[in-house]
């Protein structure tokens, strides 16, 4: 009986039509949630790249004791579960934690911090591998032209830019799709730290599947938009070859 009245197809179709309804009606609450997700994940990705690319470059281009170990550690952190990062950042930012004085627990800033810790190893690890994948003679050529260190770095990074864009795409994907870390340090506060993924979890819990599906579709569309832009950029570079 209940199967007939509310089958999964109805739930799904309901969700899709509600999603487009919400997008078209520009529901302020939904837009706010989507905007927060986008803002937090984009800033976290850019910050992760700002620290991950230079560090990845240094690791890949210098030889030092324990380099393989360092790379292995970074590669491990590329797959760290977001909830572990969430727990660590929670304990760090907690009032009784070492960074409690910042008072940023349960704020978007805390979410950005947690996601930056997630994106950083992704960018760093993929930067290391794309620099290592460069023709080793490139560095020697730069050396023989007497290029200063900064210029050498500039050219090597430029040569691996397709790999670097891949790193940014992967990092953004990891950030926008994770729920564990921002749930723990953001608290899923309505109108303040509620992001798409945490809202989807909440609405699934409370049985509002149509709304959850709607938010899922918005998440996919946003993610698709950002990836499309980055991929077009990447293909433009590739065409030159």
């Amino acid at each position: 009986m209940w199967c007939d009245s509310m089958g999964w197809i109805e739930i799904f179709l309901d969700g899709i039509s509600e999603a487009f309804g919400l997008i078209l009606s520009s529901d302020a609450e939904i837009l706010g949630i989507a905007a927060l997700s986008l803002k937090v994940s984009m800033i976290a990705t850019l910050l992760g790249a700002a620290f991950g690319v230079p560090l990845g470059f240094l690791i890949a281009s210098r030889s030092f004791y324990g380099r393989s170990l360092t790379i292995a550690v970074i590669n491990t952190f590329m797959g760290i579960p977001p909830v572990v990062v969430g727990l660590a950042v929670y304990l760090l930012l907690s009032s009784s934690g070492p960074l409690g004085f910042l008072s940023i627990l349960y704020t978007p800033q805390a979410m950005i911090l947690a996601q930056t810790l997630l994106t950083f190893p992704v960018v760093c690890g993929l930067t290391v591998s794309s620099i290592l994948a460069l023709d080793q003679r490139l560095k020697e050529t730069l050396q023989s032209l007497s290029a200063p260190k900064l210029w050498e770095a500039f050219i090597l990074l430029r040569e691996s830019r397709i790999g670097l864009i891949t790193a940014v795409i992967a990092a953004f994907g990891a950030a926008i799709s994770e729920v564990g870390a921002i749930m723990m340090v953001g608290g899923n506060i309505l109108g303040y730290t509620r992001a798409l993924t945490t809202a989807i979890m909440l609405y699934t819990n409370t049985g509002e599947f149509a709304l959850a599906i709607a938010l899922g579709i918005i998440l996919l569309l946003l993610s698709f938009g950002v990836n499309l832009a980055l991929t077009i950029l990447q293909m433009r570079y590739r065409k030159k070859r």
């Binding site: 800033i43 850019l46 910050l47 700002a50 940023i104 800033q109 950005i112």
Partner: peptide, 15 residues
């Protein structure tokens, strides 16, 4: 400069 601005946006917003 971009990183500094980002950090500013991220962490100095009024709460």
């Amino acid at each position: 400069t971009i990183v500094a601005v980002l950090l500013g946006v991220a962490f100095l917003g009024p709460s």
